[in-house]
Computed example of a mutant assay.
Amino acid sequence: MLTVFSTGLLLGALLSASVLWLASGLAAPLPAGWRAAATVALAALAVARDAGLVRLRLPQNARQVPQDVLQRDLVRGALQFGFEMGTGVRTYVSASLPYALAAGVLLANDGGVALAAGLGFALGRAATPTLRFASGAGEEWDDRLIARLPLLTTGAAAAATAALAVLALRG
């Protein structure tokens, strides 16, 4: 089921990335330097939010995909559950990094960037259930994750901001 779920994640993330890429044409008239600077600034804001330096409410559909999706048909349900999580639209997204990533795709106006972002988002979302399953001790793994979550979210956002800054400086 993990493979079916991950396939759904990938399909959902690629759909969202495609929609963002299509909408990115609206930002095309802005000078590339402005778009790059805005991307880095938004990513830095994401780091500040995840570090607790800034209070900022994230726009999201604050409800989870219902569990009964899995109870009707396990395979189709796992695919649908993954798809809905992959879009990032019908689920909680507590970290700021996916929002900075979405803004980066919108401002980049580049199909390759959108594809890479969709793949990265899907792989990131698939990593949690995959690693939890691989641990063989799900509840203990959950406890370790909860203890490290603030460092993980802030660290990921900081690494992404650094990468975006390097890309922006390269032109």
Rank of each mutant, 00 (worst) to 15 (best):
M1L: 14
V4G: 08
S6C: 07
G8D: 06
L11M: 12
L11W: 06
G12R: 01
G12H: 00
L15D: 03
A17I: 01
S18A: 13
L20E: 04
W21D: 07
L22V: 12
A23M: 15
S24A: 02
G25W: 07
A28H: 15
P29I: 02
L30W: 06
G33Q: 08
R35D: 01
A36R: 13
A37P: 12
V40E: 00
V40K: 00
A41Y: 11
A44Y: 07
V47N: 02
V47M: 01
D50H: 05
A51I: 03
V54D: 14
V54F: 14
R57I: 06
R57P: 07
Q60W: 13
Q60S: 14
R63H: 05
Q64H: 15
Q64Y: 15
V65G: 13
P66C: 10
P66R: 13
P66N: 12
V69D: 12
V69T: 15
Q71H: 12
Q71T: 10
D73R: 10
L74M: 13
L74G: 08
V75H: 14
R76D: 11
G77V: 02
A78H: 09
Q80S: 15
G82I: 00
G82M: 03
E84A: 11
G86S: 08
G86C: 09
G86M: 09
T87A: 04
V89G: 04
T91S: 05
Y92K: 08
A95H: 12
A95R: 11
L97T: 09
L97H: 12
L97A: 12
L97V: 14
P98N: 03
Y99C: 09
L101H: 07
L101S: 07
A102W: 02
A102H: 01
G104E: 05
V105I: 05
V105C: 04
L107K: 01
A108H: 01
N109Q: 04
N109H: 10
N109S: 08
D110F: 05
G111Y: 00
G111D: 02
V113G: 02
A114Y: 07
L115N: 08
L115T: 12
A116G: 07
A116V: 12
G118R: 00
G120R: 01
G120Y: 02
G120C: 06
L123N: 10
R125F: 03
A126M: 07
A127K: 03
A127E: 05
P129D: 00
T130L: 03
L131R: 06
L131D: 03
R132I: 02
R132S: 00
F133W: 09
A134M: 08
S135V: 01
A137G: 11
E140C: 14
D142R: 01
D143P: 06
R144A: 11
L145W: 10
L145N: 06
I146Y: 09
A147G: 05
A147I: 10
L149G: 08
P150R: 11
P150L: 07
P150C: 08
L151N: 07
L151E: 09
L151P: 03
L151Y: 14
L151C: 08
L151H: 11
T153D: 14
T153Q: 10
T154W: 06
G155A: 06
G155E: 05
A156F: 11
A159S: 04
A160K: 06
A160C: 09
T161Y: 03
A163I: 04
L167E: 07
L167T: 10
L167Q: 12
A168R: 05
R170G: 08
G171T: 10
